[in-house]
Computed example of a mutant assay.
Amino acid sequence: MITHLRSGRSRRNDDGRIALLALVLAFAVLVMIGLSVDGGGKIRAMQRADNIASEAARAAGQAILAPQAIEGGEKVVDPTAAVTAAQSYLAAAGVTGVVDIGPDRKHVAVTVTITYTTLFLGLIGIDTLTATGHATTVLVAT
Rank of each mutant, 00 (worst) to 15 (best):
A19G: 04
M32N: 08
S54C: 11
A59H: 01
I114V: 13
G8V: 06
A81L: 01
A28V: 11
Q47G: 15
Q47F: 08
L119H: 07
V24Q: 13
A59N: 08
G125Y: 04
L21F: 02
L5R: 14
M46I: 04
G61Q: 04
T113P: 13
A45R: 09
A81S: 01
A57R: 14
A92S: 14
T132P: 12
R6S: 11
G72I: 03
E71H: 07
S54N: 13
A45E: 11
G122H: 02
V76Q: 14
L20N: 05
P103C: 12
L90S: 03
D104A: 14
S10W: 07
P103G: 15
A45N: 12
S36C: 11
V77A: 01
R58K: 11
V108D: 02
D14R: 12
I2N: 11
N51W: 06
V29R: 14
A131I: 06
A57M: 06
A59M: 05
R58D: 08
L119G: 12
F120S: 09
R44W: 04
G16M: 06
R6C: 04
I101L: 02
T128Q: 15
L30D: 07
I33M: 14
D78K: 00
P67M: 02
D14W: 03
Q87R: 12
A66E: 10
T111Y: 02
L121R: 05
V140N: 13
A91C: 05
T80I: 05
A63R: 02
I64R: 10
M46V: 10
T137V: 08
A19N: 07
R58A: 13
G72Q: 09
T142M: 14
F27M: 15
I126A: 05
L5W: 07
L20R: 04
V138Q: 15
S36I: 08
L119P: 07
G72N: 04
Q87P: 03
V108A: 00
A81D: 01
D14Q: 13
A22F: 02
D14F: 07
